[in-house]
Design a protein around this nucleic acid. Structure first.
Lengths: 343, 343
DNA sequence: TAAATTTTTTCAAACGTTTGCATTCAATAT
DNA sequence: ATATTGAATGCAAACGTTTGAAAAAATTTA
């Protein structure tokens, strides 16, 4: 019958009739400990499965080696890629990532941040929830900042909050995507937009709009319809688009999921892609290369964003107080595939 | 200039020339504290942004309210659904989920488990990595068990390790999928298998094989090819299948990704789906409903698994030592769509 | 053999919080 | 005026570990 209570240094000390300090030193290979003592203690510790209580150490050293990662969702390829990037850099350095999913809720986001601070997380990576964004509240962020806990924005950001951030150049990615469609001769380009208010949605939308304007094309309000990033949310909007008197001959989706939803509807209508209808997505998710036809998209370097964000965190950590926040914008890259390649 | 060091109860005590106990009680609305004292202290605490140090509390109470979730990946729909399910149940109860991604590595898995124990996680949900599975090591699991830390297996499991587990009935799902293909008149059914050794791979493979046998069909070894669950990994195997003298007229993919990869290759070859080639996947990922044609698949209730696993954890927690481990097997469900519906 | 030196071990404090028990102080009852 | 009560606060220990300084034990030197 194994003991339920974890064995402590004191238990071992009692067993050897020595002081806890000796045990501690023995376990940590302190030079001032007798070789025999050390060996005996280490052996016994292993035997009984002693494992250092990191909680007490955290208290003592005021270091928890824990970082918070607060994101609205982990259901998309991109988000998981970011986490992978963070993980790749920070895990080997001994950090534990505490991943918190807000589900786009302001309340949950607030609660998580508060909890992370209470648990003395040493840094927080945050992609703000949509509700937070909409509401414009950010006292919960002030709280983090006033604690001098490094706070790194990922992707979605408050324009007017002073902190480091790592984002992808959504604007130029979208611009390039739409310009490509124009080059391919598409005349009526619709946009399946993301939720209002989010940086990613708005930046891509702006890229779309500016590109049309630059090329002297009309921005038809009715060709711009909202979605929520999910496949399903593209179905009805696309149907509506295709039933118009002057339907679009190309669709720029806010992400791959949405573009794939649109592709499905267009094919159901008997449209040939890319001949009758051009399609471009965003994200370069793994599946996009294997749809039929394959999907033209914009690459979004999620892993790199995670790695850059880690870098920002580390340099803020090493800075001595007077740290100048940094903004990293990674370029996005158009990946031309079949869905838009009209010859 | 805000202080970098978090303000403690002692700081507040000093400010009010009272003892830490008084501050503690005041903050916790202890009845034996003078109303004015209480109000003043609470006000001041709020003003200076006091936040209880949960680390010290954890040490004192030996409770961390932290649970480990150790999974090989979070890049698939299914895994994120499971996490969502765990989250939905446990977050409201005040638990923090510590999500650890092993990337299928035994070493990382071991390290994470050890770390979770050191950090005194109160329970661990584990989907073992492939390497662990292959190697057959499980001392790192014994360690968890001997600590009496509830350990719940998710999905992938060691047959011979005594603990609670929540899994999906992969076998019957696969069986139903293949039987459906047979009913539809497909004669040569190939299987794009998952990595060897993993429960999910093997169970689905077994369902496939047993179904063929039950229906008196030949199990052709050359029609069974390994993949790694990813889209890309289906491309070459499918090409190989289609170039055979007697190529298959249907493919059962170990998951949707693989089936979608196969779909792409088949369509490239000019095969019509489902007329010339039947396809079935596994997972019922969101995208599967919107491929063209839509993909017949087997639903895998990830969220439910997460919720069931939570339940298992909670009942083990509430049990007084003599807990009989439980095995939950959730049914999987065939979802018939276009890719196999040959009339 | 005593003093000097080296090796090994112990003591005590610290990290931040809670809590049973003891103490203080004022108000009330005798 | 004194005993009794009650309210409000303080003390000290505890959680598990580390670490500088002090103490003890063992060894070497003269």
């Amino acid at each position: 019958m194994n003991s339920s209570r974890p064995v402590t240094i004191k238990d071992i000390a009692k067993r050897f009739r020595c002081s806890p300090s000796t045990v501690s030193r023995a376990l940590n290979d302190h030079p001032a400990i007798n070789e025999d003592t050390r060996k005996n203690i280490q052996e016994y510790a292993k035997e009984v499965g002693y494992q250092r209580n990191e909680v007490s150490l955290s208290l003592l050293n005021k270091k928890t080696a824990t970082l918070g990662v607060v994101v609205p969702t982990i259901s998309n390829y991109y988000e998981t890629a970011v986490i992978e990037g963070l993980h790749n850099v920070l895990q080997p350095m001994g950090y534990t990532l505490n991943i918190c999913v807000t589900n786009e809720s302001y309340l949950l986001e607030k609660e998580y941040l508060s909890k992370l601070l209470s648990n003395r997380a040493e840094g927080i990576f945050l992609s703000v929830s949509q509700e937070t964004y909409d509401s414009g509240y950010y006292e919960h962020l002030e709280q983090v900042a006033s604690r001098k806990t490094p706070l790194i924005f990922i992707d979605r950001e408050y324009e007017d909050f002073e902190t480091s951030r790592a984002t992808v150049d959504d604007y130029h990615g979208a611009f390039a995507a739409v310009e490509h469609l124009i080059t391919m001769g598409y005349k009526q380009i619709a946009h399946l937009k993301g939720p209002n208010g989010l940086t990613v949605s708005e930046q891509r939308f702006k890229g779309y709009k500016d590109c049309l304007i630059k090329h002297g094309m009309e921005v038809r309000e009715e060709l711009i319809i909202n979605t929520n990033f999910k496949v399903e949310s593209a179905i009805l909007p696309t149907r509506r688009l295709l039933e118009m008197e002057t339907p679009p001959d190309a669709i720029f989706g806010v992400n791959d999921q949405v573009a794939i939803g649109a592709m499905r509807v267009a094919k159901d209508k008997g449209l040939r892609i890319p001949q009758d209808m051009g399609l471009v997505g965003f994200d370069n998710s793994p599946i996009s290369a294997y749809t039929f036809p394959s999907l033209t998209t914009v690459n979004r370097p999620g892993r790199k964003i995670g790695m850059e964000a880690s870098r920002l965190f580390l340099s803020e950590l090493n800075a001595s107080g007077d740290y100048a926040h940094e903004s990293i914008v990674l370029p996005s890259e158009l990946i031309i595939r079949e869905s838009s390649l009209r010859i």
